[in-house]
Computed example of a mutant assay.
Amino acid sequence: MTPRTSVFKKRRLNLLVPSINSQHYFGGIHTAVQVFEAMATHFEASRIILTDSPPDDAALARFARYSPVASAQDSIADAQVVSFSDRYGKTLPVAPGDHWLATAWWTAYAAQRVAAWQESSYGAPGKLAYMIQDFEPGFYPWSSQSALALATYRPKQDLGIFNTSLLADYFASQGLDYVRRVVFEPTINDGLRSALTHARVSTSPRSRRIVVYGRPSTPRNAFSLICEALRIWGWNDPRSNQWEIVTPGELISDLDLGPVQLKALGKLDIDNYAELLRTSAIGLSLMVSPHPSYPPLEMAAFGMEVVTNSYANKDLSTFAPVIRSTFDMTPEAIAQALSAACDAWDERAMVPAWIMPENHAFLAEQAFGPLAAAAAHKLGVVSRGNV
C-alpha cells in the first residue's frame, strides 16, 4: 500500500479490512467494524479501506453513511469507504492526523509501513491499533506467510485489541505481551437471545441430534479429524444409529462416513440456527487455536453437551459445566467424549441438566463503548467531547 501526501486536516481513524461484502461480513470482520465504529466516535473523521475485495452494491447500501471515494481522490468527506484491492500503480492519500486500526495480519503489515512513512513525511509516526482475533501465524505452515504474520506483532509499539483474555494470555506466554492492550470477551449473538429464553423454560426432551461445526475450508477447525472421530464413534457405539448428525454452514451435500451419515444443512439464518441449538442434544466443534471460537459457547448456552478441544492455555470446560474439552486431540479421544455425552443424555431421559443462567458473562450485552474509549486513550487521542 503506497501512500502519498494529503491536505486532509482532521484527525481520522482508518479501518483496514479485507472486505465488507455479505459473503465475508461475519465473525471477525463484523466484530472489527463494531469496534471501529465505537472508536470512530472519538475522532473527527473515519475511513474504511478495503484491501482485498471491492464493495458490491449491497455492501455500500449497508454502509450508506460512508461516501465511496476512489483512491485517486483526496476527499474531504468525514466518512469514506475506499476500495483499494486493485492498487497496482495507485497510491492512497495519507494525512498527518490519520490513525490506523488493522485487522488481518496483511492489513497490519501495510498499516505499519504507512505509519512509518508518516514519520518520514510529517515528522511523527502514525498511531496504530491492531485488532487481534487469533494467532495468525498458525494459519500457515512454517513459511514466508507465517514469518510475515509473526513479524506484524509489535508488542512494544502498537496497541493490541484482543478478542478474549485467553488469546491475550496466550500471546503473553509466547513473549508477545503487549505494553498497551485492551481486551473484550465474547458475548452471545443477539439473534439467539429469544430462543435461549424459550429453552430456559421448556420441559421438552431434546432430539437425539449431534450438531457439528464443520468448516472443510478452514484447517484450524479440523474437519477431517471430526469425520474420523465420527466414524470411530459410529463403529464403536451401538447407539449411533439412534442419532442424527447434522452440520450447518459450508458443507452443501451429505457425507457418507461409513457407519454414520453427516447431513448437510447449508447456511442457516439466525432464527433457524437458534431453533437447531434449542432442540439438539450434542455439539461437536473443534478449534486448533488459542481462540475459543463462538460455536461451542453458543451450543453450551443452550444446554447442549459440547465436545471440543483444549489448546495451550484454553480449556473451555471452565466456561460451562456441559463442555467436555479434551487435551488429547485424537479421533479416539473425541469419539469417547461423544459416547460420554450420549451417556449423560440417556441418564437424564434427554432432558438438559443445565441452561446458561441469565447472569452468565456470555449473556451480557456487548457494549464496545468503554473499550473504544480506553483504546482511544491509549492511542493518545483526546475524545471530541473533551476538546
Rank of each mutant, 00 (worst) to 15 (best):
H198V: 15
Q261K: 15
F26L: 12
M304P: 07
C342Q: 03
L128V: 09
H24G: 02
V381C: 08
V69A: 05
S280C: 02
W345N: 04
I252H: 14
R220W: 00
E305T: 10
P248C: 09
I334F: 08
D177G: 03
L265M: 06
Y88P: 02
Y153V: 04
A320E: 09
L257P: 10
Q336K: 11
N386W: 14
V82A: 11
T279D: 12
A40G: 01
L166E: 10
E305Y: 05
P96V: 09
G123T: 04
G283D: 07
G28N: 01
T330A: 12
F63I: 06
D315V: 04
Y170M: 00
T31G: 12
K10P: 03
Y130Q: 09
P259Y: 11
Y25T: 00
S240M: 06
G138L: 10
R154A: 13
K267P: 10
P186Y: 09
F36P: 00
Y178C: 09
A102P: 02
K267A: 13
N241D: 13
G138K: 08
D190A: 15
P155C: 04
A300C: 00
E244G: 07
D56C: 08
V288Q: 14
A374I: 03
V246P: 05
H42Q: 01
R62E: 10
Q145L: 15
Y311S: 06
D98S: 00
T5E: 15
S317E: 07
E275C: 12
F368E: 04
T308Q: 02
K314E: 03
F26E: 12
F26G: 07
A168F: 11
S22A: 14
P292I: 11
S85K: 07
H198D: 15
E37Q: 03
K90C: 13
A110S: 14
I20S: 00
T41N: 02
D177W: 07
R181G: 09
I270P: 10
Y311I: 03
I20R: 04
L159I: 03
V307K: 09
A79W: 12
S121F: 08
I334T: 03
D254M: 12
S146Q: 10
S173T: 03
